[in-house]
Computed example of a mutant assay.
Amino acid sequence: MEKIFSALVVREQEAGKFTRSLEQVKMEDLPDGEVLIKVHYSSLNYKDGLSAVGNKGVTRNYPHTPGIDAAGTVAYSSVPEFSKGEEVIVTGFDLGMNTNGGYGEYIRVPSAWVIPLPKGLTLKESMIFGTAGLTAGLCTEALIAHGITPSKGPVLVSGGSGGVGSLSVAILSKLGYEVIAVTGKKKAHEILKSLGVGKIISREEAVDSSGKPLLRPIYAGAIDTVGGSILTTAMKSLKYGGSIACCGLVSSPKIDLTVFPFILKGNNLLGIDSVECEIQKRIDVWNKLAGPWKPDQLSKITETCNLDQLSDKIQQILKGELMGRTVVSLY
Protein backbone atom coordinates (compact mmCIF):
# COMPACT_ATOMS: atom_id res chain seq x y z
CA MET A 1 0.00 0.00 0.00
CA GLU A 2 1.26 3.48 -0.87
CA LYS A 3 2.57 5.55 2.02
CA ILE A 4 2.41 8.76 -0.02
CA PHE A 5 -0.38 9.79 -2.40
CA SER A 6 -1.53 12.77 -4.47
CA ALA A 7 -4.14 15.24 -3.20
CA LEU A 8 -5.36 18.75 -3.90
CA VAL A 9 -4.30 20.74 -0.86
CA VAL A 10 -5.58 24.20 0.06
CA ARG A 11 -3.24 26.25 2.25
CA GLU A 12 -3.70 29.51 4.11
CA GLN A 13 -0.65 31.65 3.41
CA GLU A 14 -1.75 34.64 5.47
CA ALA A 15 -5.04 35.99 6.71
CA GLY A 16 -7.52 35.97 3.86
CA LYS A 17 -5.15 34.51 1.24
CA PHE A 18 -5.31 30.88 0.15
CA THR A 19 -3.50 28.75 -2.43
CA ARG A 20 -4.29 25.32 -3.78
CA SER A 21 -2.02 22.85 -5.52
CA LEU A 22 -1.41 19.14 -6.03
CA GLU A 23 0.84 17.79 -3.30
CA GLN A 24 2.20 14.47 -2.10
CA VAL A 25 0.49 13.64 1.20
CA LYS A 26 1.57 11.11 3.80
CA MET A 27 -0.88 8.37 4.67
CA GLU A 28 -0.11 8.95 8.34
CA ASP A 29 -1.49 12.49 8.05
CA LEU A 30 -5.01 11.22 7.36
CA PRO A 31 -7.44 11.46 10.29
CA ASP A 32 -8.42 8.47 12.39
CA GLY A 33 -11.19 6.19 11.16
CA GLU A 34 -12.11 2.54 10.82
CA VAL A 35 -12.18 2.48 7.00
CA LEU A 36 -9.39 3.47 4.59
CA ILE A 37 -10.69 3.97 1.04
CA LYS A 38 -8.80 4.26 -2.23
CA VAL A 39 -10.76 6.96 -4.04
CA HIS A 40 -11.59 6.30 -7.70
CA TYR A 41 -13.99 9.20 -8.26
CA SER A 42 -15.23 12.32 -6.52
CA SER A 43 -17.41 15.19 -7.73
CA LEU A 44 -17.45 18.96 -7.71
CA ASN A 45 -20.06 20.77 -5.62
CA TYR A 46 -20.48 24.45 -4.78
CA LYS A 47 -19.52 23.68 -1.19
CA ASP A 48 -16.24 22.21 -2.45
CA GLY A 49 -15.56 25.46 -4.26
CA LEU A 50 -16.12 27.43 -1.07
CA SER A 51 -13.78 25.15 0.87
CA ALA A 52 -11.16 25.49 -1.88
CA VAL A 53 -11.05 29.28 -1.60
CA GLY A 54 -10.86 29.38 2.19
CA ASN A 55 -14.45 29.89 3.28
CA LYS A 56 -14.25 29.42 7.06
CA GLY A 57 -17.99 28.78 7.21
CA VAL A 58 -17.31 25.47 5.42
CA THR A 59 -13.77 24.59 6.51
CA ARG A 60 -12.31 25.96 9.72
CA ASN A 61 -8.71 24.83 9.55
CA TYR A 62 -6.12 24.63 6.77
CA PRO A 63 -4.19 22.99 5.14
CA HIS A 64 -7.13 20.95 3.90
CA THR A 65 -8.21 18.65 1.06
CA PRO A 66 -11.82 19.36 -0.09
CA GLY A 67 -14.25 16.90 -1.69
CA ILE A 68 -17.55 16.16 0.06
CA ASP A 69 -18.13 13.09 -2.14
CA ALA A 70 -16.00 10.00 -2.69
CA ALA A 71 -16.41 6.59 -4.32
CA GLY A 72 -13.82 3.86 -4.34
CA THR A 73 -12.65 0.56 -2.91
CA VAL A 74 -11.88 -0.36 0.67
CA ALA A 75 -8.11 -0.56 1.20
CA TYR A 76 -8.37 -1.46 4.89
CA SER A 77 -11.17 -1.92 7.42
CA SER A 78 -10.97 -2.56 11.13
CA VAL A 79 -14.68 -3.43 11.30
CA PRO A 80 -16.43 -6.53 9.91
CA GLU A 81 -19.09 -4.53 8.04
CA PHE A 82 -16.60 -3.71 5.25
CA SER A 83 -13.96 -5.83 3.59
CA LYS A 84 -10.89 -5.07 1.48
CA GLY A 85 -11.74 -4.49 -2.16
CA GLU A 86 -15.41 -3.72 -1.54
CA GLU A 87 -16.84 -0.85 -3.58
CA VAL A 88 -18.25 1.90 -1.35
CA ILE A 89 -19.39 5.51 -1.36
CA VAL A 90 -19.17 8.33 1.18
CA THR A 91 -21.14 11.57 0.95
CA GLY A 92 -21.82 14.29 3.48
CA PHE A 93 -21.16 14.15 7.22
CA ASP A 94 -17.84 15.99 7.72
CA LEU A 95 -16.09 14.64 4.62
CA GLY A 96 -14.37 17.44 2.69
CA MET A 97 -15.39 20.02 5.26
CA ASN A 98 -13.05 19.54 8.21
CA THR A 99 -12.06 15.96 7.36
CA ASN A 100 -9.76 15.40 4.36
CA GLY A 101 -12.03 14.71 1.41
CA GLY A 102 -12.35 13.09 -1.98
CA TYR A 103 -9.80 15.24 -3.81
CA GLY A 104 -7.11 12.95 -2.46
CA GLU A 105 -6.32 9.43 -3.64
CA TYR A 106 -7.13 8.07 -0.18
CA ILE A 107 -9.55 8.99 2.60
CA ARG A 108 -9.91 7.51 6.08
CA VAL A 109 -13.32 7.88 7.69
CA PRO A 110 -15.59 6.46 10.41
CA SER A 111 -17.41 3.32 9.29
CA ALA A 112 -20.73 5.02 10.08
CA TRP A 113 -20.16 7.31 7.08
CA VAL A 114 -19.69 4.49 4.56
CA ILE A 115 -22.32 2.68 2.53
CA PRO A 116 -21.86 -0.15 0.02
CA LEU A 117 -22.15 0.83 -3.63
CA PRO A 118 -25.76 0.03 -4.59
CA LYS A 119 -26.32 -2.63 -7.23
CA GLY A 120 -27.14 -0.94 -10.52
CA LEU A 121 -24.53 1.83 -10.20
CA THR A 122 -20.90 2.00 -11.22
CA LEU A 123 -18.49 3.99 -9.05
CA LYS A 124 -18.48 6.76 -11.64
CA GLU A 125 -22.28 6.86 -11.85
CA SER A 126 -22.47 7.14 -8.08
CA MET A 127 -20.41 10.33 -8.31
CA ILE A 128 -22.54 11.72 -11.11
CA PHE A 129 -25.19 11.60 -8.40
CA GLY A 130 -23.00 12.34 -5.35
CA THR A 131 -24.40 14.70 -2.72
CA ALA A 132 -26.40 16.49 -5.42
CA GLY A 133 -28.15 13.29 -6.45
CA LEU A 134 -28.78 12.21 -2.88
CA THR A 135 -30.30 15.63 -2.21
CA ALA A 136 -32.45 15.45 -5.33
CA GLY A 137 -33.57 11.97 -4.26
CA LEU A 138 -34.41 13.10 -0.75
CA CYS A 139 -36.42 16.01 -2.18
CA THR A 140 -38.32 13.69 -4.51
CA GLU A 141 -39.01 11.23 -1.71
CA ALA A 142 -40.33 14.05 0.51
CA LEU A 143 -42.75 15.25 -2.18
CA ILE A 144 -44.03 11.72 -2.79
CA ALA A 145 -44.47 11.17 0.96
CA HIS A 146 -46.66 14.30 1.07
CA GLY A 147 -48.92 13.10 -1.71
CA ILE A 148 -47.44 15.00 -4.65
CA THR A 149 -48.10 12.59 -7.51
CA PRO A 150 -47.83 13.29 -11.27
CA SER A 151 -51.62 13.56 -11.52
CA LYS A 152 -51.66 16.52 -9.11
CA GLY A 153 -50.03 18.89 -11.61
CA PRO A 154 -46.67 20.41 -12.54
CA VAL A 155 -43.64 20.49 -10.27
CA LEU A 156 -41.31 23.49 -10.34
CA VAL A 157 -37.54 22.97 -10.09
CA SER A 158 -35.42 26.05 -9.43
CA GLY A 159 -31.74 26.21 -10.31
CA GLY A 160 -32.53 23.79 -13.10
CA SER A 161 -29.08 23.84 -14.71
CA GLY A 162 -27.21 23.14 -11.47
CA GLY A 163 -26.27 19.80 -9.97
CA VAL A 164 -29.28 19.26 -7.70
CA GLY A 165 -31.62 20.97 -10.13
CA SER A 166 -30.64 18.99 -13.23
CA LEU A 167 -30.76 15.68 -11.37
CA SER A 168 -34.13 16.59 -9.84
CA VAL A 169 -35.45 17.34 -13.32
CA ALA A 170 -34.15 14.01 -14.63
CA ILE A 171 -35.58 11.98 -11.73
CA LEU A 172 -38.99 13.66 -11.77
CA SER A 173 -39.25 13.26 -15.54
CA LYS A 174 -38.34 9.58 -15.22
CA LEU A 175 -41.22 9.20 -12.74
CA GLY A 176 -43.73 10.82 -15.08
CA TYR A 177 -44.03 14.32 -13.58
CA GLU A 178 -44.65 17.44 -15.64
CA VAL A 179 -41.60 19.56 -14.83
CA ILE A 180 -41.21 23.32 -15.09
CA ALA A 181 -37.58 24.38 -14.71
CA VAL A 182 -36.15 27.76 -13.74
CA THR A 183 -32.80 28.78 -15.18
CA GLY A 184 -30.96 31.94 -16.10
CA LYS A 185 -28.78 30.13 -18.65
CA LYS A 186 -30.14 30.02 -22.20
CA LYS A 187 -27.49 27.48 -23.16
CA ALA A 188 -29.06 25.08 -20.68
CA HIS A 189 -32.43 25.01 -22.44
CA GLU A 190 -31.58 22.25 -24.90
CA ILE A 191 -30.16 19.99 -22.19
CA LEU A 192 -33.13 20.57 -19.88
CA LYS A 193 -35.58 19.73 -22.65
CA SER A 194 -33.65 16.54 -23.41
CA LEU A 195 -34.05 15.61 -19.73
CA GLY A 196 -37.82 15.86 -20.06
CA VAL A 197 -38.63 19.42 -18.99
CA GLY A 198 -41.99 20.55 -20.33
CA LYS A 199 -41.50 24.28 -19.79
CA ILE A 200 -38.57 26.55 -18.97
CA ILE A 201 -38.94 29.94 -17.32
CA SER A 202 -36.37 32.61 -16.55
CA ARG A 203 -35.38 33.70 -13.07
CA GLU A 204 -37.25 36.95 -13.67
CA GLU A 205 -40.44 35.07 -14.61
CA ALA A 206 -40.10 32.99 -11.43
CA VAL A 207 -40.22 36.06 -9.17
CA ASP A 208 -43.36 38.02 -8.26
CA SER A 209 -42.82 41.53 -6.90
CA SER A 210 -46.46 42.45 -6.28
CA GLY A 211 -46.24 41.82 -2.55
CA LYS A 212 -49.46 39.79 -2.61
CA PRO A 213 -49.61 37.13 0.14
CA LEU A 214 -51.06 34.55 -2.28
CA LEU A 215 -50.82 34.14 -6.05
CA ARG A 216 -52.64 32.13 -8.71
CA PRO A 217 -52.16 28.43 -7.89
CA ILE A 218 -49.91 26.80 -10.50
CA TYR A 219 -47.70 24.12 -8.97
CA ALA A 220 -48.55 20.90 -7.19
CA GLY A 221 -45.06 20.97 -5.70
CA ALA A 222 -41.55 22.24 -6.12
CA ILE A 223 -37.92 21.42 -5.47
CA ASP A 224 -36.16 24.64 -4.57
CA THR A 225 -32.37 24.83 -4.66
CA VAL A 226 -31.90 28.61 -4.42
CA GLY A 227 -34.06 30.13 -1.66
CA GLY A 228 -34.89 33.83 -1.60
CA SER A 229 -37.51 35.44 -3.80
CA ILE A 230 -37.92 32.41 -6.08
CA LEU A 231 -38.82 30.22 -3.11
CA THR A 232 -41.12 32.94 -1.76
CA THR A 233 -42.96 33.19 -5.09
CA ALA A 234 -43.21 29.41 -5.51
CA MET A 235 -44.68 29.05 -2.03
CA LYS A 236 -47.36 31.61 -2.84
CA SER A 237 -48.10 29.80 -6.13
CA LEU A 238 -48.80 26.30 -4.80
CA LYS A 239 -52.09 24.55 -5.34
CA TYR A 240 -54.11 23.45 -2.32
CA GLY A 241 -52.18 20.78 -0.40
CA GLY A 242 -48.97 21.45 -2.31
CA SER A 243 -45.46 21.07 -0.91
CA ILE A 244 -42.00 22.44 -1.58
CA ALA A 245 -38.81 20.55 -0.76
CA CYS A 246 -36.25 23.21 0.13
CA CYS A 247 -32.54 22.36 -0.01
CA GLY A 248 -30.52 25.43 -1.02
CA LEU A 249 -29.75 29.10 -0.47
CA VAL A 250 -27.51 30.13 -3.36
CA SER A 251 -29.80 33.12 -4.02
CA SER A 252 -30.62 33.97 -0.40
CA PRO A 253 -31.33 32.26 2.92
CA LYS A 254 -34.25 34.63 3.51
CA ILE A 255 -37.88 34.32 2.47
CA ASP A 256 -40.71 36.84 2.83
CA LEU A 257 -43.96 35.03 3.56
CA THR A 258 -47.17 35.29 5.53
CA VAL A 259 -48.75 32.23 7.13
CA PHE A 260 -51.52 32.25 4.51
CA PRO A 261 -50.09 29.50 2.24
CA PHE A 262 -49.90 27.23 5.27
CA ILE A 263 -53.19 27.90 7.04
CA LEU A 264 -55.43 28.67 4.05
CA LYS A 265 -54.12 26.15 1.50
CA GLY A 266 -52.54 23.47 3.70
CA ASN A 267 -49.17 23.90 2.03
CA ASN A 268 -45.91 22.46 3.35
CA LEU A 269 -42.33 23.74 3.30
CA LEU A 270 -40.12 20.67 3.70
CA GLY A 271 -36.54 21.12 4.85
CA ILE A 272 -34.09 18.69 3.20
CA ASP A 273 -30.68 17.89 4.70
CA SER A 274 -28.23 15.52 2.99
CA VAL A 275 -25.27 16.12 5.32
CA GLU A 276 -26.38 14.47 8.58
CA CYS A 277 -29.19 12.37 7.09
CA GLU A 278 -29.26 9.00 8.86
CA ILE A 279 -27.68 6.04 7.12
CA GLN A 280 -30.75 3.86 6.50
CA LYS A 281 -32.56 6.72 4.81
CA ARG A 282 -29.49 7.30 2.63
CA ILE A 283 -29.37 3.63 1.67
CA ASP A 284 -33.06 3.62 0.78
CA VAL A 285 -32.69 6.65 -1.50
CA TRP A 286 -29.45 5.38 -3.06
CA ASN A 287 -31.18 2.11 -3.94
CA LYS A 288 -33.95 4.04 -5.68
CA LEU A 289 -31.39 6.14 -7.56
CA ALA A 290 -29.69 2.93 -8.67
CA GLY A 291 -32.98 1.33 -9.66
CA PRO A 292 -36.40 2.74 -10.57
CA TRP A 293 -35.36 6.40 -10.28
CA LYS A 294 -32.17 6.13 -12.33
CA PRO A 295 -32.41 8.56 -15.27
CA ASP A 296 -31.48 7.36 -18.74
CA GLN A 297 -29.63 10.56 -19.61
CA LEU A 298 -26.93 10.87 -16.92
CA SER A 299 -24.21 11.35 -19.52
CA LYS A 300 -25.97 14.43 -20.91
CA ILE A 301 -25.40 16.38 -17.70
CA THR A 302 -21.90 15.11 -16.90
CA GLU A 303 -18.34 16.14 -17.65
CA THR A 304 -15.20 14.54 -16.22
CA CYS A 305 -11.93 16.11 -15.12
CA ASN A 306 -8.83 14.93 -13.26
CA LEU A 307 -7.03 16.49 -10.30
CA ASP A 308 -4.80 18.54 -12.62
CA GLN A 309 -7.84 20.20 -14.19
CA LEU A 310 -9.83 20.62 -11.00
CA SER A 311 -8.59 24.05 -9.95
CA ASP A 312 -10.00 25.67 -13.11
CA LYS A 313 -13.33 23.89 -12.60
CA ILE A 314 -13.48 25.23 -9.04
CA GLN A 315 -13.25 28.78 -10.37
CA GLN A 316 -15.98 28.04 -12.90
CA ILE A 317 -18.45 26.63 -10.38
CA LEU A 318 -17.96 29.63 -8.09
CA LYS A 319 -18.72 31.95 -11.02
CA GLY A 320 -21.85 29.96 -11.89
CA GLU A 321 -20.42 28.89 -15.24
CA LEU A 322 -20.85 25.11 -14.90
CA MET A 323 -23.95 23.14 -15.79
CA GLY A 324 -24.99 19.74 -14.51
CA ARG A 325 -22.37 17.59 -12.80
CA THR A 326 -18.57 17.49 -12.87
CA VAL A 327 -17.03 14.14 -11.93
CA VAL A 328 -13.43 14.13 -10.70
CA SER A 329 -11.44 11.05 -11.74
CA LEU A 330 -8.58 9.95 -9.49
CA TYR A 331 -8.22 6.47 -10.93
Rank of each mutant, 00 (worst) to 15 (best):
M1W: 08
S6L: 13
A7L: 05
R11K: 14
A15C: 05
F18T: 01
L22G: 03
K26H: 14
K38M: 06
Y41W: 13
D48R: 11
G49D: 04
S51H: 09
G54P: 01
G54N: 02
G57F: 13
V58A: 01
Y62V: 00
T65C: 07
I68H: 00
D69M: 00
D69V: 05
A70H: 01
G72P: 09
G72S: 07
A75Q: 08
V79N: 04
S83R: 14
V88F: 00
F93Y: 15
N100I: 14
Y103F: 15
I107D: 08
V114T: 02
L117F: 08
P118Q: 12
T122K: 10
E125Y: 05
S126P: 04
S126W: 13
M127D: 06
T131H: 06
A132Q: 10
A136H: 12
L138H: 02
T140V: 15
E141G: 06
A142W: 05
A142F: 09
L143I: 02
P154M: 09
P154A: 03
V155C: 05
V157R: 03
V157M: 09
G159E: 05
G159W: 11
S161V: 01
G162W: 11
G162I: 08
G165I: 01
S168W: 13
A170K: 07
L172Y: 13
Y177M: 03
E178H: 14
E178R: 13
I180F: 12
A181P: 04
V182K: 09
K185G: 02
K186E: 14
K187G: 04
S194D: 11
I200Q: 08
S202R: 11
R203Q: 11
E205Y: 07
K212F: 05
P213H: 10
R216L: 13
G227L: 08
I230W: 00
T232Q: 11
T233S: 13
M235H: 05
Y240C: 06
S252A: 08
P261F: 10
I263V: 12
K265W: 12
G266H: 10
N268E: 15
E276W: 10
E276R: 15
V285F: 09
V285P: 04
A290W: 13
A290C: 09
G291Y: 02
K294N: 09
P295S: 06
L298N: 03
S299I: 04
T302G: 08
E303M: 11
T304W: 10
L310Q: 04
L310S: 02
S311M: 14
I314D: 01
I314Q: 08
Q316P: 06
L318A: 07
K319Q: 15
E321D: 15
G324C: 14
R325H: 07
